[in-house]
Design a protein around this nucleic acid. Structure first.
Length: 174
DNA sequence: CGGATTTGACCGGCGC
DNA sequence: GCGCCGGTCAAATCCG
């Protein structure tokens, strides 16, 4: 976990998928190191200087956390854990388009937070889920949690987001 | 017309 | 055992 910046710079042609895959790999690596039991382990922190996202006026700071979700409800099934990556983004727009097609399937009120929105990837066979929460503390703070990994190419051409990713800087630990 | 979004209800799990 | 909270589903609606 030393060369975060290098990894991101090398993902110039593969776009957003590379970002998530990169985080995926690093998350797994760190998971072995820390092996947190509380379920949340901070893996990366990103900061985006004032960018060109429509609606964003100030700097964005992304914080990625990886979570292990164990599903042991079924019978003798193997221990399946779903990777979850949470990004804390300081922006005014709730929906950060990462290039995939998302379909909202639920919205429920939570005590400490605002109304979290639940999204699912509409690609056939893709069970990746995304949860967007808005912190009541900071209106501009949005927590996006990705659950699962995409196994298909990106449909949309979000040059905007990609541009931001290129400017993204990750610090080893904050 | 098709697809995405919305909102309410339902279900399951956890806590007390 | 009951109640509460969170999460998901599903039908209706709206938009493009």
């Amino acid at each position: 976990m030393e060369n975060y910046q290098t990894i991101f710079q090398s993902s110039s042609s593969s776009s957003h998928l590379s970002l998530l895959n990169t985080l995926n790999s690093q998350a797994q690596t760190q998971r072995q190191d820390h092996n947190k039991s509380n379920g949340y382990s901070r893996i990366t922190s990103m900061e985006i200087p004032g960018s060109s996202i429509s609606g964003v006026t100030q700097s964005n700071s992304l914080t990625g956390v990886e979570t292990e979700v164990k599903i042991g409800k079924k019978r003798g099934e193997k221990i399946s854990r779903k990777p979850r990556y949470a990004f804390q983004t300081r922006t005014q727009v709730d929906i950060l388009d990462d290039g995939y097609r998302w379909r909202k399937y639920g919205q429920k009120a939570v005590k400490n937070n605002k109304f979290p929105s639940y999204y699912r990837c509409t690609y056939q066979g893709c069970t990746v889920k995304k949860q967007v929460q808005r912190l009541s503390n900071d209106e501009g703070m949005v927590v996006t949690t990705y659950e699962g990994t995409h196994s298909h190419p990106i449909e949309k051409s979000t040059d905007n987001f990609e541009h931001i990713l290129s400017q993204m800087q990750i610090y080893p630990s904050i």
